[in-house]
Design a protein around this nucleic acid. Structure first.
Length: 565
DNA sequence: TGCTTCCTGCCAACCTCA
DNA sequence: TGAGGTTGGCAGGAAGCA
């Protein structure tokens, strides 16, 4: 409830005036919309994820349904609803609703993928194939802010027409005339400011102190607090940064829209006039905020003399930039990593790799004491703890405070890591994103022959990697696994462990129809031989510095003695 | 309690470009 | 060809679920 409303009511009751017949608060609606937009940008209470291009847009179903007839129908429907075709445009792009399996807890990413399950509940993921992320970002920002900053000040006719076309397809009346005629669309008036907002807030031009930046953040996190209503920062619909003056916000939006050109100057005010970063950031002593392809700006902080890279979306901090870049894909889904054996898609390559181990049954972790092999490091560790009374981690490595791994020098590994049977995936060009052609003639080879008799079909169609998104949406926590349920593979790889459904919220089942084959595929893993725990035939790999090539009682004893056992 | 996924520092392989 | 950037694998604890 609006604090202003309560104030008026309190005053009317406390004074001698009779209570009014009706209490109205003209600032209530824009304030609520503003709060909804902030919640969307922060991923709060979002109950649907829209996928346009390769970008995810968390949103609120109610807001979407109230703004667009298409969304209202799509979010009500239990079956995929085709998006209305572009009038005079290209081929229609069927929107596919994706129902998050209500039983997703039993459908973890390492468990066999469920068959195409009809969505009996409202879809939680709505995919909009063919809808460019940039245009949809503008439309979604309009839905949540009733404002639309036209690309390049309206001079970008193609972009404006694209937004207008999307508005027509979604049935958003205010956008329907956009791009069709010069005067067919009237930009809506900016959201009215709350009466209590100071017009001259005393901040003036120039960088804002970090305290104020933090204050805005605190207000955004505590929407009911008094300062939030008295100051009411205006968030940028693209990046979420808050500004006091609408003019400043407009200036920032223009810069923000230009993308990379603003990353060094407009992001955090490093060397510019924008707002300063969070407390702890020494802008003058640091390199400028660096943007990376397809990702958001990130914040560089210095804490205790150590440089930290902070994700602009979720504020996680990282010691290394590469870790932050890797993490950023969880937000952007700029790259997708589909499993070759089932229909799950992962946000990180490593997740996919680990998941595929369950399909191949490969056992790479070998105990150097008994030569038994294990699928996962956890299994190895449990085995060595139970049967040998040791914990390999205590001797092999050093854990960093943030959960990272720092190997010690001259350490004794109490296990052997067998080389991966699948060849190392060749890299492709960085600048082109997804490659256009298969990497090798063997890439189309179906799944490994060692798959069980009921093995799933070959590599499923995977999402087509699109161009780098221009917008990184806030999605915290972001789903990091998408399960395509279009084809009934089942994917019950023999020996697949039922994972027990960990991280249920990160598994999404697609009911989308099969897509065209993914252009980028990886070489299939070689056939999986029967594990021979007692035969270290594959010993001596470069990654196995600790173990001898042959297993003898003498070497086993030596290993045990070396381990202090 | 068992098991899986997530997370993140570190590092090597790979790619791009001057 | 070397420098610098990108990508993905590894380790192993944390978190979460059944």
């Amino acid at each position: 409830m609006s604090r202003a409303w309560r104030t008026r009511r309190h005053r009317s009751q406390a004074g001698a005036m009779p209570p009014p017949a009706e209490v109205t608060d003209p600032s209530h609606a824009p304030a609520v919309l503003r709060q909804l937009n902030e919640q969307r940008l922060r991923g709060l209470f979002c109950d649907v994820t829209l996928i346009a291009g390769d970008t995810k847009f968390p949103a609120h179903r109610s807001v979407l349904a109230a703004s667009s007839p298409f969304f209202r129908e799509a979010l009500l429907a239990s079956a995929p609803l085709p998006l209305p075709p572009v009038i005079g445009g290209s081929a229609p792009n069927p929107a596919t609703t994706t129902a998050a399996s209500s039983s997703s807890s039993s459908s973890s990413s390492s468990s066999p993928p469920p068959a195409s399950s009809p969505a009996s509940s409202p879809p939680r993921v709505l995919e909009l194939p063919g809808v460019p992320a940039a245009a949809f970002s503008d439309v979604l920002n309009f839905i949540y802010s009733a404002r639309l900053a036209l690309p390049d000040g309206g001079g970008d006719g193609a972009a404006v027409a694209e937004i207008g076309a999307l508005g027509r397809r979604l049935g958003i009346s205010r956008l329907q005339g956009l791009g069709e005629g010069g005067d067919a669309w009237v930009p809506p008036a900016p959201a009215p400011m709350a009466p209590s907002q100071p017009e001259e807030d005393g901040f003036g031009p120039g960088p804002r102190p970090a305290r104020e930046w933090e204050s805005d953040r605190a207000e955004a996190q505590a929407p009911d607090s008094q300062p939030a209503l008295s100051r009411q920062p205006l968030p940028c619909p693209r990046c979420g940064k808050s500004f006091i003056h609408p003019k400043r916000l407009h200036t920032h939006e223009a810069q923000c829209r230009r993308g990379a050109s603003t990353r060094g100057s407009a992001g955090l005010g490093v060397g510019g006039s924008g707002p300063s970063g969070p407390t702890g950031m020494d802008a003058s002593a640091l390199p400028p905020t660096v943007g990376f392809r397809g990702g958001p700006e990130h914040v560089v902080k210095v804490v205790g003399g150590h440089v930290l890279y902070v994700c602009a979306a979720c504020e996680r901090s990282y010691v290394t930039l590469s870790s932050l870049k890797r993490h950023s894909n969880v937000h952007s889904w700029r790259r997708k990593y589909p499993c070759r054996y089932c229909e799950k898609v992962f946000a990180l390559a490593e997740y996919r790799t680990k998941h595929e181990v369950w399909h191949t049954g490969e056992r790479r972790y070998q105990c150097i004491f008994c030569w038994e092999t294990f699928v996962t490091y956890y299994n190895l560790k449990t085995h060595q703890r139970a049967f040998h009374g040791i914990s390999p981690g205590l001797l092999a490595s050093e854990k960093t405070p943030n959960g990272g791994y720092k190997p010690k020098l001259n350490t004794l590994k109490l296990y052997r890591l067998l080389p991966m049977r699948a060849a190392k995936r060749p890299y492709k060009t960085y600048s082109q994103g997804a490659p256009e052609a298969p990497l090798s003639p063997s890439l189309n080879t179906p799944a490994p022959t060692a798959m069980p008799a009921s093995s799933p079909p070959g590599p499923p169609p995977a999402p087509e990697p699109g161009p780098p998104p221009s917008v990184i949406t806030f999605a915290h926590p972001a789903p990091s696994v998408i399960v395509h349920g279009g084809s009934s593979s089942g994917g019950t790889g023999g020996g697949l462990a039922n994972t027990g459904g960990a991280q249920a919220a990160s598994v999404i089942t697609y009911t989308a129809p099969p897509r065209p084959p993914k252009k980028r595929e990886y070489p299939p893993p070689p056939p999986v031989p029967t594990p021979t725990p007692t035969s270290p035939a594959t010993a001596g790999s470069p990654a196995t510095p600790a173990g001898p090539a042959t297993a003898t009682e003498e070497t086993k004893g030596r290993n045990l003695r070396a381990a202090g056992l």
